[in-house]
Design a protein around this nucleic acid. Structure first.
Lengths: 123, 123
DNA sequence: GTATCTGGTTACCGATCGTAACTTATCCAA
DNA sequence: TTGGATAAGTTACGATCGGTAACCAGATAC
């Protein structure tokens, strides 16, 4: 029995991060914040995501009510994904964290390099 | 053709989330924000984490310069972990997301239940 | 006929995660 | 002096997860 499930109800942060924590979800939300987008268009723009992971990610986000799915009556039928209002509010809440990531990326890279170097020196 | 959206996907968000994305890191950071803490004390307070995952998580955070590790000259020797200034700034940046998680947890639960119910109805 | 577009699904494999057991050492109580 | 508790992890192993490649039907374009 995974501890994950046991604690998620006690901790909203954990509960939300179990879904939003994976990098793909965040990248998809960032992309959809720019406006609705179709499946293949999303895959082209979210660098490195596979069709399977995009499919899985979108279904999770849809289940949590963060993303809506609409089938267009074209031929071949297209599928348009968009943020719901809840999804849009999450995107806004991620803003501060995104800014932090951008300003602190160099510091983190440096720290990693220093740590790895010190380990190598210890050998 | 999909409009090319100007998003930088060598991207810091992804880079940071690869580390911070797992729920354990976040929970440990939240805990350490309350002040320095020893290994076993952390394990008792972070609900459900195993010694192995705590060890792994702390080493990752230390490598990224978000957490410091200090061995106390006691007997038996104790190890005290604390947020660095970078780690503390990350905690501050997570505040908005944490608040979002708390206010939106009910909505997400509801959406999940509705989604699962509609799937079952479709069967 | 063949290539490309649409939105996915399936099979498979290696990395990761969690659980339980083990380690080395010191102190306290019986 | 033997057992238990606490300290901070490490190791082995099985389950689960994420990613890659291949494949599907139907339609349009060349």
């Amino acid at each position: 029995m995974p501890a994950k499930r046991a604690t998620s109800y006690a901790c909203p942060i954990r509960d939300v991060l179990d879904r939003v924590g994976d990098a793909w979800s965040v990248l998809v939300i960032m992309e959809l914040a720019g406006g609705p987008c179709r499946f293949n268009a999303l895959q082209r723009v979210v660098n490195g995501i596979s069709a399977r992971m995009l499919s899985v990610t979108l279904r999770h986000l849809e289940r949590d009510g963060l993303v809506s799915r609409r089938v267009l009556e074209t031929s071949p039928p297209q599928v348009e994904y968009a943020l719901t209002t809840t999804g849009a509010s999450l995107h806004r809440a991620m803003g501060e964290l995104a800014a932090w990531a951008e300003t602190n990326q160099p510091a983190i890279r440096e720290a990693r390099a220093a740590y790895d170097a010190s380990l190598e020196a210890a050998q």
